[in-house]
């Protein structure tokens, strides 16, 4: 009996952990993103804000937004760096491949293509309390080229070489 209870408890913990790895995703909020500079080839250095109930979740949200902006809307430029075009050419691509993108963003696969490069926890003006919880502003590095290659391999977008 003790073993059964223990197994059930472990199973419950497992489910909870798996559930914790889920990331909420929607297309209904605007992305607060801006290019900071180009990094090494294929990488984009982006400043992004995210809002969620806790600071950790807001940081996850910001990282998700940075990747989503690269995929759907593009990232606006700054005085010494050009804008980055969207990989899918617009938000219509989401409706076309809804299942694919929901899976990509909700299951956390996007995390393989983005890295939080802040050395400290966001503080001061980069971590403010708002109605929905916390709004954080962080710097991230998006592996834009790897993201493009993944979308090309998964036949979501065409590669430059595929036309001829």
């Amino acid at each position: 009996m003790k073993k059964v209870v223990l197994s059930l408890l472990l199973l419950l913990v497992g489910f909870t952990a798996a559930e914790a790895r889920k990331y909420p995703f929607d297309m209904n909020h605007p992305y607060e993103v801006q290019m900071v500079r180009v990094a090494n080839q294929g990488y984009k250095f982006i400043k992004v804000s995210g809002v969620a109930k806790s600071v950790d979740k807001a940081m996850d949200r910001a990282m998700q937004d940075a990747v989503a902006a690269c995929v759907f809307t593009g990232v606006p430029g700054a005085p010494s760096v050009g804008a980055v075009p969207s990989l899918c050419g617009g938000t219509a691509a989401y409706e076309k491949h809804k299942e694919y993108f929901d899976d990509f963003f909700k299951n956390g696969e996007f995390m393989h293509y983005v890295k939080n490069v802040n050395s400290n926890y966001p503080s001061g003006e980069n971590n403010i309390k708002v109605d929905g919880g916390h709004k954080v502003c962080i710097y991230v590095l998006v592996n834009y080229d790897a993201l493009r290659k993944k979308l090309e391999e998964d036949k979501i977008i065409k590669s430059l070489n595929s036309y001829f």
Binding site: V38, V81, A83, L160
Partner: peptide, 30 residues
């Protein structure tokens, strides 16, 4: 466009310039 102002060698700045326009350039070609 304009690269960032830096004391880095010009070769590095040229590389930065190319990287900053290549994505838009290849999107235009596409």
């Amino acid at each position: 466009g304009v690269s960032s102002a830096s004391g880095a060698p010009v070769t590095v700045l040229l590389q930065e310039s190319v990287l900053s326009f290549m994505d838009n350039f290849s999107a235009g070609i596409q």
